[in-house]
Amino acid sequence: MAKVTMLLAYAPDRPEGDLADRIELRACLTPQGQIDVQAYLADPLPWPALRVLPDGTERATELVQVESGWALRSTRGGDDAPLWTLDGRVFRPGELVTLRGPDAAGLVFRIVNVEAG
């Protein structure tokens, strides 16, 4: 399993990004850097992710597969928690990933690190 670290590169209210706003995602990746669907389906445990906001607040989430690809869901609300669509095809340093909330606002994150673990 890889740990993917992303930093906010753009938000409507922060057009220059914010280094204190990040996502840490754990996922099995293919050699091409894509999320490994077979590994996801075979794993009985959810794949964790953590959103750290600029004020230091941490929000525990998990990666879930949806029709359009992938999303993050809060671990607090169970299956009824709102989904935040994760638009990213390749998870390698330098790639961009867009996180869209239920209100469709897009936050763009840049992957800064991918490491085993």
Rank of each mutant, 00 (worst) to 15 (best):
M1T: 14
M1V: 15
M1A: 11
A2P: 00
T5G: 03
M6V: 04
L7A: 01
L8E: 09
P12R: 04
D13A: 04
E16I: 09
G17T: 01
D18G: 12
D18R: 14
A20N: 11
R22F: 03
R22A: 14
R22S: 04
L25R: 09
R26N: 05
R26Y: 13
R26G: 05
R26V: 08
L29G: 01
Q32R: 05
G33D: 05
D36L: 15
Q38F: 14
Q38W: 13
Y40W: 15
L41P: 02
L41R: 15
A42T: 07
P46T: 06
P46Y: 12
P48M: 08
P48Q: 11
L50S: 06
V52H: 02
L53W: 13
G56I: 10
E58L: 10
E58G: 06
A60D: 11
A60T: 11
E62Q: 13
E62C: 12
V64Y: 13
Q65K: 06
Q65N: 07
Q65L: 02
Q65G: 00
V66A: 08
S68F: 01
S68V: 03
S68L: 06
G69V: 12
W70T: 05
W70H: 01
L72T: 09
L72R: 01
R73A: 02
S74W: 11
T75Y: 05
R76G: 05
G77I: 10
G78R: 13
G78C: 09
D80H: 15
A81L: 14
A81P: 08
P82V: 13
W84S: 01
T85M: 11
L86C: 03
D87W: 05
V90P: 00
F91S: 00
R92M: 05
R92D: 03
G94S: 07
E95F: 02
E95C: 03
V97R: 01
T98G: 12
G101F: 01
P102Y: 06
P102F: 05
P102Q: 07
D103M: 01
D103C: 03
A104K: 00
A104Y: 03
A104V: 02
A105K: 06
G106R: 07
V108P: 10
F109A: 02
R110P: 00
V112N: 05
N113H: 12
E115S: 11
G117I: 11
